[in-house]
């Protein structure tokens, strides 16, 4: 039963991978990477059930936390072209300079 679910999960991962490779926008790719990360977390849980070693779930917890950082970094860098500035400050600067998109 868990094996079938795991295989279905890999099928979903393959489809997300196809979306990641096709793009076309950067945002599509970020969304796909994030979705792929969620699926990997669940896959690791299922897989550690399959091999009967609960250590895999520790890795799943770690990925659930780490994946977020990568996504935020890509978005922030793509938007502001800097790792340096606080997000709140950027919003303030936009408001001050009257640039409203």
């Amino acid at each position: 039963m868990i094996f079938v679910v795991t295989i279905m999960m890999t099928a979903a991962m393959a489809m997300i991978l196809a979306r990641l490779l096709r793009g076309p926008e950067l945002y599509d790719r970020v969304l796909a990477v994030n979705s792929f990360g969620t699926k990997t977390v669940l896959f690791l849980c299922l897989f550690s059930f399959l091999i009967d070693r609960p250590d895999g779930i520790d890795i799943a917890i770690l990925y659930a936390l780490m994946n977020f950082i990568g996504t935020i970094a890509v978005l922030k860098f793509f938007r502001y072209r800097s790792l340096d500035i606080a997000l709140a400050q950027m919003a303030l600067r936009r408001a001050v300079s009257g640039e409203d998109r």
Partner: peptide, 23 residues
């Protein structure tokens, strides 16, 4: 896209390491 694909590569590699029992 390359940077993001590296992230995906690492996710897949981690799964593969788990399956090799190298937790």
């Amino acid at each position: 896209a390359v940077v993001m694909l590296y992230g995906v590569y690492s996710l897949l590699a981690a799964i593969w390491f788990v399956s090799l029992d190298a937790v």
